[in-house]
Design a protein around this nucleic acid. Structure first.
Lengths: 96, 96
DNA sequence: TTATATTTGTCCGTATGTATG
DNA sequence: ACATACATACGGACAAATATA
């Protein structure tokens, strides 16, 4: 069962919910640096949203530098420890 | 001076016409519970009104609990049979 | 090599939510 | 009340890159 539904009563837009959940998990270390986060399809299944909505959240994570996305592979958590190469995967958009 | 605030022959506001027509059709069973009612664009076309006007009528239907609105999908007729979950889609504003 | 499955990239059409003239 | 524009969302479709059998 999805964690949330797309009802219009959600305090935030659906993609915001996905974004908040993924951000929290990444910062909590649920996905180690270099590890793959769930795929688009898995996020759709888990959150009960359309792929576009899942991708919108993933895009923000990429813009914020939390993940790197590789075509055909998935998105990996970026190692942000001192001295690590950021990889420059997107424009610098630290926050919204 | 208002041209019709005390004129019993004044026509109802356009959104009232849309509201009355949709209410009658829903209660007549034209749209089964769970079925989608016409979209904003279809209502505009059918009644010859602006989208804002169609949406006002739809909003009242939602507030009255006759329909449930899903973002990106449409508005569905609520099953109001005994024991059915109303879904709580809006503030309780049963009538004007 | 080919075939299949998975994943991301992109595009289309439709619908609602919101804001501004 | 009308007209327009944009943001957000859903659903489907296809292409391109990757991984595996």
């Amino acid at each position: 069962m999805p964690e949330n539904s797309s009802d219009p009563h959600a305090p935030r837009a659906p993609y915001m919910e996905v974004l908040a959940a993924l951000t929290a998990e990444i910062e909590a270390g649920k996905y180690a640096p270099g590890a793959l986060i769930p795929s688009d399809a898995q996020l759709c299944e888990r959150f009960g949203v359309a792929r576009e909505t899942a991708r919108r959240a993933v895009k923000v994570l990429r813009e914020r530098g939390l993940i790197r996305t590789e075509w055909g592979r998935g998105s990996r958590v970026v190692d942000r420890s001192a001295g690590a190469d950021p990889g420059n995967q997107g424009p610098a958009v630290p926050n919204a």
